[in-house]
Simulated assay, not measured.
Amino acid sequence: MAYERIMGLDVIDDQGYKAYRAAMMPILQSFGGAFGFDFRVSEVLLSKTEDKINRLFTIAFPSQKHMDDFFTDPEYLAVKAKYFDVSVNSKTIISTHETNP
């Protein structure tokens, strides 16, 4: 089993978000995490949130604990504060679920 999250973002600074992805990738991998799909979205036809979404991706971990530990890791939080928080206007968790790898 793996644990996967589907996320929607409103990216407002593509270069800043690219720097975030580059900086967080080694940390993500150290927790066994990986991106599965990644899309730039041009039109959202139906949504359960008022937040805009222009980026959609999946992120997976070996377990929910790995995911929780990653998102609370101090090194990750420093990278997030430096790059993500200034390049992303909003984030939407669309789904979180167990999968068969």
Rank of each mutant, 00 (worst) to 15 (best):
M25D: 10
D85P: 08
M67K: 03
K18D: 15
H97V: 07
S87C: 11
L56Q: 09
N54Y: 04
I59W: 00
S47H: 07
P74T: 03
L28K: 01
M7R: 03
V79C: 08
F39D: 12
R55V: 05
T58K: 08
L45N: 12
I27D: 00
V44F: 07
V88L: 07
D14K: 15
Q64R: 13
L46Q: 15
A81P: 08
K91L: 14
V11Q: 03
N54C: 08
Y17G: 06
F39E: 10
G16D: 06
K80A: 08
L77C: 09
E4V: 06
R21M: 14
Y20M: 05
M25G: 04
E50V: 08
A2Q: 11
T92Q: 07
D85M: 11
G8H: 00
I59A: 00
P62I: 00
I93Q: 15
G32D: 01
D51A: 15
K18T: 12
Y17A: 05
M25I: 05
Q29H: 12
K82Q: 12
N89T: 10
A60G: 11
P101F: 13
V79G: 01
T72E: 13
I27S: 00
K82V: 01
M67G: 02
S90F: 06
P62D: 02
V11G: 01
I27C: 00
F70A: 03
I93W: 08
G16K: 04
T96P: 06
P26L: 06
G8E: 01
L56D: 05
F37K: 15
P74C: 06
Y83P: 04
D38M: 14
F57S: 07
N100A: 14
S42E: 14
A78Y: 08
Q15Y: 11
L77Q: 09
K65E: 13
N89I: 04
N100T: 12
A2H: 10
I53D: 04
I93F: 09
E50G: 10
F35W: 10
D13N: 14
A81N: 11
L45F: 12
V88G: 05
T49H: 10
T92N: 10
S30P: 09
F37G: 14
G33L: 01
P101N: 14
Q29I: 10
P101S: 15
M67V: 01
L77D: 03
I59V: 14
I53T: 06
M1N: 07
S63W: 01
